[in-house]
Design a protein around this nucleic acid. Structure first.
Lengths: 122, 122
DNA sequence: ATTATTGTACTATCTAAATAATACAATAAT
DNA sequence: ATTATTGTATTATTTAGATAGTACAATAAT
């Protein structure tokens, strides 16, 4: 299937974002075993080294841990996952309003623009 | 002052974003003369070549135009500026909801989370 | 015991981006 | 006329990232 990656940011960062999101959104469950580095590299269509880098960075963040030869697993610390989810969501909101502000939209305008956009979809 | 740049994306793309936003938000007015390449490079604390690249790309987008030796100017096509502003805003909204969705928040949840966040600020 | 799979490590190569240092032609300012 | 400023072009160097290829130690599976 080959993940959607662009050339504007380092691949390994995009891989991290994607996997982090999949964990947060519970596509992978706490304690679940991840596919191997080589498998994930195949799935995403990237070099195994690049995937390895992404995974080892996620390990530094504490989101996954590896057991020497049995594989790599999602952390079982559900409290941490919940907290991370909230943090990431808040960060998205903050950045979004920041961007809109820089385009010249105050909070009120942004809010009504959202309403309008959502209505148009429905 | 030195603009806020990170190492996660090419500098010239970040420069483009910044200048594009400043134009859209009317920090620079249509027809107004931009500081010279060298000046802007100093202001942003980047290499003149990098700034040159950003500006020539913005020129390809039609946002600015250069007159051989008198300098570089903001386009006078206000219609285009207005349209670009709307497009960029819509794109921000779309991406934001996309990101939130990938974190596991549906539109409704995202909306109420926004309300909650804005209230907390006030 | 043997085999296959695991994460990990290492070296080499290639490319894009950023920087540095100049240079030049056109023209506005003097 | 001379000077300074403009955008632009060129060459070289450095660095980070991506890829390719290979290797190894630990251990689960057989």
């Amino acid at each position: 299937m080959s993940w959607e990656l662009d050339n504007d940011r380092p691949i390994y960062l995009q891989l991290m974002d994607r996997i982090r999101q999949d964990i947060i959104a519970s596509l992978y469950r706490p304690g679940e075993k991840l596919p191997s580095v080589r498998e994930l590299a195949l799935i995403a269509s990237v070099n195994p080294n690049t995937m390895q880098k992404a995974l080892s960075e996620l390990e530094r963040e504490g989101l996954v841990y590896s057991q020497r030869t049995s594989g790599r697993f999602i952390t079982e610390d559900e409290k941490m996952l919940k907290q991370l989810k909230d943090e990431l969501a808040f960060e998205q909101i903050r950045k979004f309003f920041e961007q809109m502000k820089q385009l010249g939209f105050q909070e009120e305008e942004t809010l009504s623009l959202i309403q309008k956009t959502l209505k148009r979809e429905a």
